[in-house]
Simulated assay, not measured.
Amino acid sequence: MQAQWTCIVLAGQRPGPDMLAQHFGLEHKALVPVCGEPMICHVVRTLHLSPHIGKIIILSQDIEHLRSAVDAAGGAILVESQNSISLSIKAQAETLGFSSPLLVTTADHPLLTVAMIEEFLRHADGDVAVAMVERQTMLKQFPDAQRTWLRFSDGAWSGANLFALMTQKSSFALELWAGAEQDRKKAWRLFLHFGLLLAIRALTRSVGLHQALEKAGKRLGLDARLVSMSDPVAAIDVDKLSDHLLAENILMERETPSGDT
């Protein structure tokens, strides 16, 4: 299968100290070990295994500290990022000129699998697509899961750290993202950027997330889609110690042949 996608991996640091990195005596969250290997290694190696991915670009404010880990996982292009996540992605998209569609993921997603990438890219359509996991899908496998849920009329949703930018029009979404990054975990505040009515409908849960994204996209003149992921693990990134413990347990289970005790 011919590789068609360029993947951008976000491996930067938000302002202030990262509590998880500090727990492990590290400065960079992307280097926190999961099952004895830096998180970013798991991500980069998985991307190399996907037949859909051609070029891999790592964005970080401190690329030299990540170089050895990235090289150990098969290598990637390391690019110094700006302070804004969205503007950093936009700069790369403009440099590439959308010669290939872009998949965006994060370095704190060590549970990412080739199957997740396959499912997301198979269903990604339009100009922009966002992967999410619905709460019931998560609770069936992880009844005690603690995530940030965006609640809408079609369920409660948690992000899966997978984004597809497929056309030049997606630059409009990145520009909006630059002004709304601080609102990413408050649905009504996020949709306030698309107008008061949509924000009220999000606040009162009188609109589904699928429809809300489509309406928000139309405000920007683009086609925005939600991809509902079937594997709840897609929504498990590693932000805190409880996530870290869960991630290590899941990875160890994957490595244990079925039937073994």
Rank of each mutant, 00 (worst) to 15 (best):
Q2L: 12
Q2I: 12
Q4W: 15
Q4M: 13
T6L: 15
R14Q: 04
P15E: 13
P17T: 14
P17W: 05
M19T: 14
A21W: 02
A21V: 10
F24A: 05
H28V: 00
K29C: 07
K29H: 12
A30S: 13
P33T: 04
C35M: 11
E37Y: 02
T46E: 08
L49P: 08
K55W: 03
I56N: 03
I57P: 00
I58W: 02
Q61L: 02
Q61Y: 01
H65F: 00
H65W: 00
L66N: 05
A69W: 02
V70I: 13
A72C: 06
A73I: 06
G74P: 05
I77A: 10
L78V: 10
V79E: 14
E80V: 09
E80C: 05
N83A: 15
N83C: 11
I85E: 01
K90A: 12
Q92P: 04
T95A: 13
L96Q: 11
G97K: 10
P101K: 09
T106S: 12
D108V: 12
H109Y: 07
V114G: 03
M116F: 02
E118Y: 09
F120L: 05
H123E: 15
A124E: 04
A124D: 04
A129L: 02
A129D: 09
V130S: 11
R135Q: 07
R135E: 11
R135C: 01
Q136D: 14
L139I: 00
L139V: 00
K140N: 08
P143F: 00
D144K: 04
R147C: 10
T148W: 08
L150V: 05
L150W: 05
G155K: 04
G155R: 10
A156G: 15
W157L: 06
G159P: 01
L162V: 02
A164Y: 03
M166A: 06
T167V: 02
Q168K: 06
S171P: 00
F172A: 15
L174R: 04
L174S: 04
L174W: 02
W177P: 00
W177M: 12
Q182T: 13
R184G: 02
K185Y: 14
K186Y: 03
K186Q: 14
W188Y: 05
R189V: 12
L190M: 07
L192Q: 00
F194Y: 04
G195T: 11
L197S: 07
L198T: 09
I200Y: 04
I200P: 12
R201W: 03
L203N: 06
L203M: 13
L203A: 15
T204C: 14
S206C: 08
L209D: 06
H210Y: 10
Q211W: 06
E214Q: 10
E214D: 11
K215A: 01
K218Q: 14
K218I: 14
L222S: 05
A224K: 06
A224R: 09
R225V: 06
R225L: 01
V227G: 03
D231C: 13
D231N: 14
V233F: 03
A234N: 04
A234Y: 01
A235Q: 02
K240D: 11
K240I: 15
L241E: 09
S242G: 01
E248Q: 15
I250G: 01
L251Y: 08
E253C: 13
R254A: 05
S258K: 11
S258F: 07
D260A: 14
D260L: 14
